[in-house]
Design a protein around this nucleic acid. Sequence first.
DNA 1: AAATATTTGTACGTATGTATG
DNA 2: GCATACATACGTACAAATATT
Lengths: 90, 90
Amino acid sequence: MTVDLEGPEPLYEQIAAVLAARIADGTYPQRRRIPSEAAICEEFDVSRPTARSAIRLLNERGLTFTVRGKGTFVAEQQPSDEPAGDGTSG
Amino acid sequence: MTVDLEGPEPLYEQIAAVLAARIADGTYPQRRRIPSEAAICEEFDVSRPTARSAIRLLNERGLTFTVRGKGTFVAEQQPSDEPAGDGTSG
DNA sequence: AAATATTTGTACGTATGTATG
DNA sequence: GCATACATACGTACAAATATT
């Protein structure tokens, strides 16, 4: 999986979207750790600040939570503002 | 007003607290712009990322909102988790 | 307990892009 | 076009918490 440097979306949003998709499809199971900042830097070839921005988004959206010295973990519940939304309505 | 480099709180939290106090006491009135990132850098002698972190905190807490190219403005209402809290109960 | 490695937290510096006036 | 101001992104260093040896 890669990101689009030319796209309109910021890198950190694209990366957050990729990670969010992995959470949604179970690649990153609940309560389990997601890859470290360093690993995200490696995979997406970005700087640590950018990797951290992506994680920050996930945390803000309630998908994950971060514990210093341990890592970032998938939250047990992913709250949603769109209770019925799976995008298949149209 | 200064910040405490030796203190336990991060610089950006200390700065956010100072700005929040100015919002609370009317130094920065509602709907009015607060100082620019550059001005905050100057006043507190910090880097732009640190100034931005402070502003981000204010935004997250609903005290302010930022408009790209214009500045950061005091929100019209400051939501509170402590409906009765003004600290004068004792 | 000590040393080392891993991982996140804070902070600085800089460059470039985008939006407003 | 220029000046101001925020947004994104890279690079780096050191501190603090955790985990392993």
